[in-house]
Computed example of a mutant assay.
Amino acid sequence: MTQGALVVGSIGVLINVVDAIGTGRLEPHDAFVALVALGAGGELLKERRPTAAKALQAVTSVLLVVAGSVAGVRAWGALFRGTTYDWVDLALGVLVVLYVGVGAAQLLGRLSQGAARSRLSAGTLSD
């Protein structure tokens, strides 16, 4: 399944590149096909090269946030101005906000767990 996602994502990237060359413009939502390919590549590398897989997943996350933010800001701005907008871009903007929110909550949870463990360890050492 992951190899299929890598192939489909790679084909989609090629299609988007050809389309960008033809139109002279690359849209933010065009990056999401690359995200599929990068995510699949990260999954395939997980066992053999865990460091490279983590780096690829980090690049994928940054690309997701940047592309989704650009698409979402454009679409929400158009919505508030009353001009034409794309529902997919609106949804991408909302999903990116949720993605960042969940990531921040996970990070805060890990940090608070680490702080609680260090307090517990310090209390055990002082007894």
Rank of each mutant, 00 (worst) to 15 (best):
W87P: 08
F80C: 08
V96T: 13
V66K: 00
G93Q: 05
L79H: 14
G93N: 05
F80A: 15
L90M: 13
A105V: 12
A52H: 10
L64T: 14
F80Y: 11
S61D: 12
L44G: 08
L79C: 08
V73K: 05
A53C: 10
V62M: 07
Y85T: 15
V70H: 00
V96D: 03
V97E: 09
F80G: 06
G41M: 04
D89A: 08
V66M: 07
Y85S: 15
G68D: 03
D86S: 14
L107G: 03
G68P: 04
S69Y: 03
R81Y: 00
A40L: 03
S61P: 00
K54A: 14
K46W: 04
R48W: 07
G42P: 01
A71P: 02
Q57T: 13
A40P: 06
Y99N: 14
W87S: 15
F80P: 00
K54T: 09
A104Q: 09
A71D: 01
A105F: 13
L95A: 11
D89N: 11
G93W: 00
A91S: 13
L92R: 01
A78C: 10
Y99E: 15
P50I: 02
P50V: 01
K46F: 08
G41A: 06
K54S: 13
T60Y: 05
G42V: 00
V88Y: 10
R74M: 05
G109H: 03
A52V: 11
G109V: 01
A52I: 09
L64Y: 09
L38Y: 05
A91V: 11
A52L: 11
F80I: 15
V97T: 15
W76Q: 07
A78Q: 15
G103I: 00
G77V: 05
A105H: 11
A58M: 07
V59F: 09
A53R: 07
L98D: 12
V65N: 05
G82H: 05
V102Y: 12
D86V: 06
A52N: 04
L63T: 11
G77F: 03
R48P: 02
F80T: 15
V59A: 09
T60F: 08
D86H: 07
L63D: 04
A58L: 10
V70N: 00
Q57S: 14
V65G: 02
Y85E: 10
S61W: 08
G41W: 02
K54L: 10
P50K: 04
T84K: 13
L108D: 10
V96G: 04
V88K: 07
L38V: 11
L38E: 01
A71I: 00
L64N: 05
L107R: 06
E43F: 10
L108Q: 09
T84R: 13
L64R: 04
V97N: 10
E43H: 11
A58W: 10
